[in-house]
Structure formats: structure tokens, C-alpha cells
Design a protein around this nucleic acid. Structure first.
Lengths: 193, 193
DNA sequence: CTGGTTTCTTAATCTGTATCAATACGAACT
DNA sequence: AGTTCGTATTGATACAGATTAAGAAACCAG
């Protein structure tokens, strides 16, 4: 259960067996059913989680009441509302499982404790945030420049598994277009082929 | 020269006088003329800088050869290409002064040194990255959802000084629209008032 | 298998923004 | 002063994607 998790962390630092034990101890393993809300708008996000198995979406509700998907997370990804979690302020976001999902999650006080005990982890989490930033910045670029079709092609290239696991209208939301538009794009791509 | 800088840092941790001296020592104070390129595509970004006075833009060149502005930075902001700097890989971005600009900048080796000497700073910089992330995520949301007019109104509300310091066509680029579109939006807003 | 959701597709129309082109303005220089 | 160059405005046209509406498929649960 911890193999991939350990690897994910040890990419950045080397921990002793004791330290790793502490880490394992402070991350709680939990399984959630499909369509479970892990975070809702207005709540303070009380976890940072490593996704062992399954799939979740992170989204917010726009002024028209529509879901806008910011991120899908699958195996070996981290999920949280970073802003809400680290600043302990109410979140604007929702986090919801799309499939049955296993997480390893840590609470805010336990993370602080962990940082005290294993200061090297500050570095690990700084790098994590940085990677998240760089992914977002990339996505942002292509969002500004690329057409809907290009963004879709990009998406399936980068996350080839997701179309099989996530309904199409949610992918449309992620791409910032309507389901109709995505459907037409797919039809037009098929014609081209 | 260091007042605002010290405050910016001490927001997050308390440093001893000695530690603060070391920090001051490792950040180099530099002044650049208007229109100086601080970073070009292909270079490894060799600084992380606190902006004491002036204004810079961070942008990339899209496939059509047009400038796409990702960020303006003014007093009390940090500027760098975080990805390039921390992973020491070639940048895709340009950073350029818009006005005469004073920076306090640190190199990669000195930052590593600083982290060794003052491990608390890992925390400061993790929080910095996090704030950058949250700003970007916010901007990304509104980019997906909001119309050009809404984004413009948002922009002048959030950065009321910038319109006076930055040419309009660069603001258009930042908003992801053409200069013509921005001009029309402004005209229409005036009419409404 | 059947009736009901949920998801996806197709088509017709509408809208915001891009593009192209022409003109106007303002500051900087000679 | 006039000339020039960079910047901003205005108008005409084109197009990507939204919206609305309807039907077709897929996916359940009884």
C-alpha cells in the first residue's frame, strides 16, 4: 500500500526507517465510495492526500451554478485545496470522488508535527507545490493560446486514461468548453482521420 | 532599502539579527534601466528577486511570435521563473523591465546555502510558492469563466496602479485579448457610466 | 425486458472576440 | 513648428464556440 507513496516521497530526500515509520503513522489510509464529497465550499480543507487508487475531481461552482473542473487526480497524485489547507481558511472548492478511491491523508496538525520531527520534509513539500505550480502554469499558457481542439488533443495526449474513466461532459468542463463543443470537436477529428 | 523586504520575509518567521544579516548579505542589490531583459528563452534563470522599486513583465512568445504576458510585478513582489530557477533547466520565458527597476536578487547556490544556514527559510519560500500558486489558480479560474470585460474590471480592481504604468496593449495581452478588443471594452464601459 | 435517468450527438441560431484596415492621437526629436 | 513612431480608436467582416432544442445511445434499477 505504501510502495508507490514511499517512492513518490523518496524521490526528493532520503529518510531513515524511523522517519519513514513516522510518516506512515501520520498518514491515514481511507477508502471512499464513488461520488463522495471530500471537501465542500465554505469548509476548511482538513487534509492533504496521496491518491493510492481511484479518481477524484476538484472543481468550483461558477456564478451560473455550473461546475468548473480544475483538476482530475488519479493514482500517484496529490489532492487537496492547498490554499485552504495551508492557510486554514474556508475553501471555495469542492473535491469529489469519481470512482471508489483510496487515499493516504494527513491532517494539518499532523503535518506540522511531521515538519517538526522531519524538517527535511519541508523541502519535499516545497518541491511538490512547485511542481503543481509548473503544471498549472503550463496549462495556463496553453489555455491562453491554444484553440479548443488543440487543448483537447493535448489533454488526451497527456492523460490518455482519463477519457475512459471520466464522463465526457466533465472533460469539456476541464477544457473550458461546453459538452456540445467537445462532441463536435471529436466528430470532426474522426472525420479527419 | 531592506525595510519592506524584511517585513515581507518576517511575515512568516522570526529571524535573529545574525540570520537577517546573512540574508542581506546573500541578496544582491541591483538597478536596471527600462527595457532591460533579465531573462530570455533558452537561458537558465539564475535569480530569484524581490522587487524594491519599478515594474517588470514576465511573458513568453507564442507560436505566432506574439508576446503573451503572464505577470506584471511591481513593488514588494517576487520575480523569477520558478520552474527554471529551482530545477535549473532552460526557461521558456522572458522577463523584462518596463520601468527603471531595483531588485534584490539571489543566485541558486546562494539560496541553497541560505537554506542550509537558516532552514526556517524553507518554510518562507514554501509559503511564497504557495501564494504564487493560489494567485495563478485564481487567475486561471476567472480566465476560464469570465468574459473579457469581467476580466478587465477584475484587473483594474486588483491592480489599480498598473493601467497608469503599463501600456494598454500589454494589459490586453495579459488579459488574453487583442488591443482592439480592450479599447472597445473601455469605450463601452465609459458609455455605460 | 422495460421505463427512466444520464450522457452524447446533431442542427440552427446567436454572440463575443479576432482579424484586417484605416485613421487619430500624443510624446519625443530634429 | 513639423515629422516620426509608437499607441489607441473605430469600422467592417469572419469565425469559434455558446446557446437552445431535440433526439439518439448508453446505462442503469425494478
Amino acid at each position: 500500500m505504501f510502495e508507490a507513496f514511499d517512492k513518490n516521497i523518496s524521490n526528493h530526500v532520503n529518510l531513515s526507517t524511523d522517519e519513514l515509520d513516522l510518516v506512515h503513522h501520520l498518514f491515514q489510509h481511507k477508502t471512499y465510495r464513488k461520488k463522495t464529497l471530500l471537501l465542500s465550499e465554505g469548509q476548511v480543507c482538513n487534509f492533504e492526500a496521496y491518491l493510492v487508487k481511484g479518481c477524484v475531481k476538484r472543481y468550483y461552482i461558477d456564478p451560473n451554478g455550473d461546475e468548473v473542473i480544475l483538476q482530475f487526480a488519479v493514482e500517484d497524485w496529490w489532492v487537496s485545496d492547498m490554499v485552504s489547507f495551508t492557510e486554514q481558511v474556508p475553501s471555495h472548492l469542492y473535491i469529489e470522488t469519481i470512482e471508489e478511491t483510496e487515499l493516504l491523508q494527513i491532517t494539518y496538525p499532523n503535518k506540522e508535527l511531521l515538519f517538526k520531527q522531519v524538517p527535511q520534509l519541508e523541502r519535499v513539500f516545497r518541491l511538490l507545490v512547485q511542481r503543481a505550480y509548473s503544471v498549472l502554469e503550463n496549462r495556463f499558457f496553453t489555455g491562453l493560446t491554444a484553440s479548443a481542439e488543440e487543448r483537447y488533443l493535448n489533454f488526451i495526449k497527456k492523460y490518455p486514461i482519463l477519457p475512459q474513466r471520466v464522463p465526457q461532459y466533465q472533460i469539456a468542463s476541464y477544457l473550458g468548453i461546453t459538452p456540445e463543443a467537445l462532441s463536435r470537436i471529436r466528430a470532426s477529428l474522426l472525420r479527419k482521420k
